[in-house]
């Protein structure tokens, strides 16, 4: 299960901090930090603050794109957008020190990411969702199944994922799922995570 931070559209990082505090008492997940509104120093400071909270429950903090910030703040991972600098170049620097994944929106980029030695992929949008609308129309479950069959690393389904849609994604071969919107209410985050897990065997 990957929890995507919801701070992208907000001008402050209060929600992220609340989410990190809630993750300290949740089942382990990957927490993907996407804070495009913040400058580098602010993201680094935020990571240094939340990494120990996220670590404490066995979760992994994956910083969006900036593996330098991840390494400098002792986060556990980096998540590369599709338009990031090439995954194999990132891997050469981070080696085994960071869990590294990438978002992909096509079979070609999925194959490329898998051959670069990444640990996991995010594929979507599988279903319709406003937050993923810029990445085009939903790709659907059939396309998810294709991607899962073509690569040998874990694929997480993203885009419009609710707990009820988890079994359909797993049936296509997905390793897990990613969501943002269901976790915007930080207070109920541990319960929401449990609800997602209840749909996984």
């Amino acid at each position: 299960m990957i929890v995507s931070s919801g701070g992208e559209h907000l001008a402050h990082s209060g929600l992220v901090l609340e989410q990190a505090q809630a993750l300290a008492r949740s089942a382990p997940v990957i927490f993907q930090l996407r804070e495009k509104m913040l400058d580098t120093a602010s993201i680094w400071q935020l990571c240094r603050r939340i990494a120990p909270l996220i670590d404490s429950a066995g979760s992994i903090l994956a910083v969006n794109e900036r593996f330098d910030i991840a390494l400098a703040s002792k986060a556990g991972g980096v998540h590369l957008p599709e338009s990031s600098c090439p995954a194999d170049a990132v891997r050469k620097v981070t080696q085994g020190n960071l869990l590294a994944g990438q978002s992909v929106h096509s079979e070609l980029s999925a194959r490329r990411a898998a051959s670069a030695g990444l640990d996991y992929l995010l594929f979507g949008p599988v279903f319709h969702t406003p937050s993923k609308a810029p990445f085009g129309p939903p790709q659907g479950l059939d396309q998810l199944r294709e991607i899962c069959a073509k690569v040998r690393i874990p694929v997480f389904a993203v885009g419009g994922i609710t707990p009820e849609k988890v079994p359909a994604c797993l049936e296509c071969g997905a390793w897990g799922v990613t969501a943002l919107t269901p976790f915007l209410d930080a207070g109920s985050l541990p319960e929401t995570i449990n609800r997602f897990f209840s749909f996984m065997p």
Binding site: T40, W44, R66, D68, C85, A89, V93
Partner: peptide, 22 residues
Amino acid sequence: DRLDIALAMKADGVHLGQQDLP
């Protein structure tokens, strides 16, 4: 600013502002 890019392509260095990494 982008130390990640500088490290990935082995630049001679990086220039950091006050709002970048220390």
